[in-house]
Design a protein around this nucleic acid. Structure first.
Lengths: 250, 250
DNA sequence: TTAATTTGTCTATTGTTCTAGACAATTAAA
DNA sequence: TTTAATTGTCTAGAACAATAGACAAATTAA
């Protein structure tokens, strides 16, 4: 007999349907639910979570909206979303190379760009004086047609004048650097945090409120150790996992 | 004039007070709010978030409960919680060494342990046959009196017979390994994901529903490259950030 | 064709969250 | 002492979330 699980909390400030949606999304990712591509019927899910069928339906509707599930009247509900992509973080971290082989249709769009004065953290990371001119790029990356990450990058405006135009054309940081005579660069440091997605990222990454983003704050340096890029990237946490090899494997 | 920010979403399945609590927790962590140790008055916060004062009060009550804030009638509301601790992930990753210097009162408790048959993923990670006996430790780590991480580790039961007892006494993986003649070990790989905390972790890590955990799945190996530990650690995402140095710094 | 299974839609009711306003209690400054 | 600023408590109503039940619509299997 299927016993009701006591994992859903009431009065928590998070609606039951959202808790159920979050849980189903995770279990689908682990193939613990809908592993054969087919979800259990709504009535079975409702019994399992100890809620009304309508509450489960609201959760399913949210996952359909996200593209994780697809519901067909009379047939059932099916899994649409794929597994999490592995994003390797290593000395030579390159966005497109990292995801190559796992997905098709990799693309990076330039949403916005500006030349501005470096704030304290940007200046420190790039070894510039505060207020020095920097170029800021706002980019959005897709894999298999699904948005995967949203990044904000800064570059020294003197050394990389025209970076935005180069990126708009090549759609790749690595290729853009090459146009500036920078053939190779290294990942100097990466800081990883996680938080709830903000309104803008919810929209760009097509997430639903309450969704989680993995945030990496990274510094890339040239082969002489000079910083060339400072960036903050928000990854949709249910589509990506970060892989950090040990040093001997790098 | 302070203009209302449109960052709080209604009908999202996440109560406004919880969205506001999550946002304030983050801004406090970044010192963007209460940087001087003192929070703006409730009326000002209510206006800023475009909600009723009572809604802000509910959010503050949740953060008081978490130990992030302290409210004093007539005086104001003050920041109690500290900054996020930096947890370095490098070749020689050691829990207590990593946090040493940033906090006092580091402690690890053994919540539970068992000898069991290795599941497929555990066997693969430890280079054992599926079903081989392994020791599983369930541990909880504190820093400055606040729970920081909840880990589940597996060890080869043959090589490390008595691991649970060693850990219970030394309260350290590194020290326990030493008792088995293992003076040094290396981090072979780390996978980082993020998700909503589950019921058990909410309780152990003293989080409120909707909170985020950073999950690292790691393999440690001895100096000959043989796996000695496989572990999954859940970090409270608002108390910890993972630091990954570039390979040249390792 | 018929029956069973499953998702989709509708109405009504109850409980929780949010708003609104008023006023008390405490502290610090004038 | 008086006043202003701030948090704490209470009441009432509006908006949203969850439950309950009934039945329609589509698909599949008998």
């Amino acid at each position: 007999m299927q016993v009701k699980e006591a994992v859903i909390e009431r009065r928590s400030g998070v609606a039951l349907w959202r808790q159920i949606a979050d849980r189903m999304r995770r279990e689908i990712g682990e193939a613990a639910l809908g592993g054969d591509g087919r979800m259990p019927p709504e009535t079975a899910l409702a019994e399992r979570f100890g809620v009304n069928r309508h509450t489960v339906r609201t959760a399913i509707a949210a996952l359909v909206q996200e593209g994780v599930l697809r519901a067909e009247q009379g047939r059932g509900t099916f899994v649409e979303g794929r597994k999490r992509l592995a994003y390797p973080i290593r000395s030579r971290t390159r966005f497109s190379e990292g995801l190559a082989g796992q997905s098709r249709g990799l693309a990076a769009d330039l949403l916005d760009h500006a030349t501005e004065k470096a704030a304290a953290d940007v200046a420190k990371a790039l070894h510039l004086s505060p207020g020095a001119p920097v170029i800021r790029l706002e980019t959005l990356s897709h894999a298999d047609g699904r948005p995967v990450s949203r990044a904000r990058s800064w570059f020294d405006a003197e050394r990389f004048a025209g970076m935005a135009e180069a990126f708009a054309q090549t759609r790749s940081i690595t290729a853009s650097f090459r146009e500036f005579g920078l053939a190779d660069y290294l990942r100097h440091s990466t800081v990883v945090t996680a938080r709830h997605a903000e309104a803008g990222d919810l929209k760009d990454l097509r997430l639903s409120p309450g969704a989680i983003v993995l945030v990496t704050t990274a510094i890339n340096v040239d082969t002489r150790g000079k910083p060339v890029q400072y960036s903050e990237t928000r990854f949709a946490a249910d589509r990506i996992e970060l892989h950090i090899p040990g040093s001997e494997a790098q």
